[in-house]
């Protein structure tokens, strides 16, 4: 087992809190969430392709982190937060899949389980006017589109490492896998993205 996960796994101690400590902890949590929330929203939005759904997922992650892990040392919050968020995203995709299965049962065409990709099927939240489209950053759109085509674990690893800037150990904690797996997922993701986006992207 890698050192990062081992160190994280044994850290089950909760920091003692007094009245003043509670106030300080609230401030720390507020600062931490303020720093992370916007990137978390974009990561969730790229994953589920829906702004409102992404906001709900981030909100859930915030509440769960505060309630369940607010007493943990603050250096553990980032991987824990993203672990909660990634679990939320995974559950969201499962629900979408079930919903799609039910819709298929009632006759909606083109919804087979194996082929269904909730991200690819969802409406584009950035449905912009032609003028906006022209002004939008096409490179980012291409990147998002390419990231969405990645298998889930590769997508998670790539976004956590590249977008959020987590190190390998933190990403492993957030994804609930080994550091070796993170490196493998990242490497494959980069390879695929380079192929899709081209050398001159």
């Amino acid at each position: 087992m890698n050192n990062g996960i081992a160190a994280f796994a044994v850290s089950c101690t909760r920091e003692p809190t007094t009245g003043a400590g509670t106030l300080q902890r609230e401030r720390q949590l507020n600062r931490f969430l303020a720093e992370i929330e916007r990137r978390a929203l974009r990561i969730a939005e790229i994953a589920v392709r829906d702004r409102d759904e992404a906001l709900d997922l981030v909100q859930d992650a915030m509440i769960k982190l505060v309630r369940s892990y607010g007493d943990r040392p603050h250096e553990e919050w980032t991987p824990l937060f993203y672990r909660i968020l990634q679990n939320g995203i995974r559950d969201w995709h499962r629900r979408q899949k079930v919903r799609n299965r039910v819709m298929a049962w009632f006759g909606r065409p083109g919804a087979r389980d194996e082929d269904y990709d909730a991200v690819a099927q969802a409406p584009d939240p950035l449905a912009r006017t032609p003028e906006d489209e022209l002004q939008a950053d096409q490179a980012m759109q291409r990147l998002e589109a390419a990231v969405r085509t990645l298998p889930r674990r590769q997508r998670e690893a790539f976004m956590l490492r590249t977008f959020e800037g987590l190190d390998v150990a933190g990403t492993a904690v957030a994804m609930g896998c080994s550091e070796g797996s993170v490196k493998t997922h990242c490497s494959r993701a980069m390879h695929t993205l380079r192929e899709k986006l081209g050398d001159h992207w």
Binding site: E26, L33, E37, L55, M62, V66, R67
Partner: peptide, 9 residues
């Protein structure tokens, strides 16, 4: 959402 979450503490 952030304020609501921190208040939940």
């Amino acid at each position: 959402d952030r304020h609501a979450a921190v208040e939940a503490l």
